[in-house]
Computed example of a mutant assay.
Amino acid sequence: MAEKENSNSAAGATPKDDKKPTPNREIPGNMPYTTSVGVFKRAVQKIPVSERPPKFNKDFLNTVFEITGGSSIPVIPILKKVGFLTSDGTPTSYYSEFQTDGGRASAALYALRTGFAEIFKRNQYAHKADRDKIIDAIVSITGLTRSDKIVGYIYGTFNVFQEYAQGADDNKSALASSPSVSDLATPTAERASAPPIGLNGISYQINLVLPATTNIEIYNTIFRSIRENLIQ
């Protein structure tokens, strides 16, 4: 039986955990959330102090993390949504980075930018924003009122990662969360270097998608890589 919520609680306060979560409503913005924020926070806290499994599945969650019951159900889908797990439950490199002291903040920032992309479209430094600004963004994206409990759940889920992301190096994280130049250009470059088959004057066009940032050093790094790897 779910715990009763205090109807006078302010929007944005960390909601109490429900023992039996209700199915999530379809909310504009496609942002992940759980009605059991405390349980999800406990699961995230266990990632750095536990082994990395070949597959992060229900058995691992129940046995190693010792998180069971209905409130554990949203944990795996949210970890997939933020890029810590692949669709089949395999931990990604960001999961591994989160296990390290040096990479935890950057991995948490990646999780926020991946799972809550709409918030970062409104504020690229959302991970450093205070509660009221995040709630304002959630209200704007979802169309819900500030008093809607879903707003509190979304903020609570966001805040689980925000607590770790405060100390992230924004410049490095921006590069890490964008496709690398080699990933974008390598297939075309390989075709361009192949010997022509009976045709002369073949040309190739490379479309480069640049990350949205005001940091000129990121662009310098990208174009330096293009010069070193493609322009020979």
Rank of each mutant, 00 (worst) to 15 (best):
L79W: 04
I73K: 14
I134L: 10
A10F: 12
I150T: 14
T186C: 08
S173Q: 12
R52Y: 03
E3D: 13
A117C: 03
R191P: 00
E26R: 10
F161R: 05
V49D: 13
Y94E: 12
L144S: 06
G102P: 00
N62M: 05
I47Y: 08
F120P: 03
N200M: 11
F223C: 04
G198M: 08
S140F: 10
K46Q: 14
E66Q: 14
L109T: 03
N200P: 01
N57P: 01
G89N: 06
L144Q: 02
D130W: 00
N6F: 04
F60E: 07
L184Y: 09
A189F: 09
Y204E: 14
E163Y: 04
K4D: 13
N207Y: 11
Y33D: 03
P15T: 04
K46A: 13
E228I: 05
A129G: 02
D132W: 00
Q166M: 08
R113C: 00
R104H: 03
I78A: 09
F161A: 02
S180D: 13
K16L: 10
I73R: 11
T63M: 06
A194Y: 00
A43K: 04
Q99A: 12
S93C: 01
V82E: 01
S147R: 13
G156V: 05
I47T: 07
D17N: 14
G69L: 07
G29Q: 09
L184H: 07
I150W: 00
G70F: 00
G167W: 00
S140Y: 10
L175S: 12
R122V: 01
K19Y: 13
G156C: 07
F120I: 02
G103W: 07
S140H: 10
A43Q: 07
L175G: 08
R131D: 10
S9F: 04
R122H: 07
Y164Q: 02
L79K: 11
L79E: 10
S9H: 04
I78M: 09
V181D: 03
Q205R: 14
L175T: 09
I197W: 02
D17C: 05
L79A: 07
I47S: 06
S203G: 15
T14R: 13
S225Y: 10
R224L: 12
G152Y: 01
P15Y: 05
T22A: 14
E3K: 14
V82Q: 02
V181F: 14
F60I: 02
L85C: 05
K16H: 07
N24E: 14
I216D: 09
K80A: 09
L230H: 13
